[in-house]
Every structure is written in structure tokens, then in C-alpha cells.
Computed example of a mutant assay.
Amino acid sequence: MRVRIVSPAFAGLTRIARHRAINDALKPAFDKGLHALAIEAAAPGEATRW
């Protein structure tokens, strides 16, 4: 699965902190078998890669 999430909540957070927040939010999905996730997390106005 590949996700791009743009949120003001990511402003000022490191890339790792953003990924941890997303992984925490998706914990139920991981517990049910989600095992591959590509994450692109950005604050509004930041460039995205894909």
C-alpha cells in the first residue's frame, strides 16, 4: 500500500516522527496483517515526491 498524507499536524515534525504517527494510527490494520506501507507525509505547502 502507498499513501500520501498532507496535514498541518506534520508541520515541525521530522520525517521519522511523521511516520511514527501514521504507523500508530494504522496499528489496527498492521495487527490484522498489513505488512507493506510506503508513506509520504508532508505539511501543507511542502513538496511531495510522488
Rank of each mutant, 00 (worst) to 15 (best):
M1F: 04
M1I: 07
M1Q: 09
M1G: 11
M1H: 13
M1C: 13
R2P: 00
R2A: 05
V3Y: 11
V3H: 01
V3I: 15
V3E: 01
V3C: 05
R4W: 07
R4D: 07
I5Y: 06
I5Q: 01
I5R: 08
I5W: 07
I5M: 02
V6N: 14
V6P: 05
V6G: 11
V6K: 01
S7P: 06
S7E: 03
P8C: 09
P8S: 11
A9P: 06
A9L: 03
A9T: 06
A9H: 04
A11R: 11
A11V: 12
A11D: 10
A11S: 04
G12D: 05
G12R: 07
G12H: 04
G12Y: 11
L13G: 07
T14R: 11
R15L: 09
R15G: 12
R15K: 13
I16C: 02
I16M: 03
I16R: 08
I16W: 10
I16Q: 11
A17K: 09
A17M: 00
A17D: 10
A17T: 05
A17N: 02
R18C: 05
R18T: 04
H19E: 14
H19K: 11
H19I: 11
R20D: 06
R20S: 07
R20W: 01
R20G: 06
A21D: 05
A21P: 10
A21Y: 01
I22K: 02
I22C: 13
I22V: 15
N23E: 07
D24Q: 08
D24E: 14
D24P: 08
A25I: 03
L26Y: 09
K27Y: 09
P28M: 03
P28G: 00
A29S: 09
A29H: 04
A29G: 06
A29D: 02
F30K: 00
F30Y: 08
D31Q: 14
K32V: 00
K32G: 00
K32C: 02
K32Q: 02
G33E: 00
G33R: 12
G33D: 06
L34M: 05
L34Y: 04
L34A: 06
H35Q: 04
H35S: 02
H35T: 03
H35W: 01
H35P: 04
A36K: 05
A36M: 04
L37F: 13
L37I: 07
L37K: 08
A38T: 15
A38I: 05
A38R: 12
I39E: 11
E40M: 04
E40I: 10
E40V: 12
A41T: 07
A41V: 03
A41I: 06
A41E: 12
A41N: 12
A42N: 12
A43Y: 01
P44Y: 11
G45I: 09
G45Q: 14
G45H: 11
E46W: 05
E46V: 08
E46M: 03
A47E: 13
A47D: 09
A47R: 09
A47P: 15
R49G: 14
R49N: 15
R49D: 13
R49V: 15
W50L: 10
W50C: 14
W50D: 15
W50G: 15
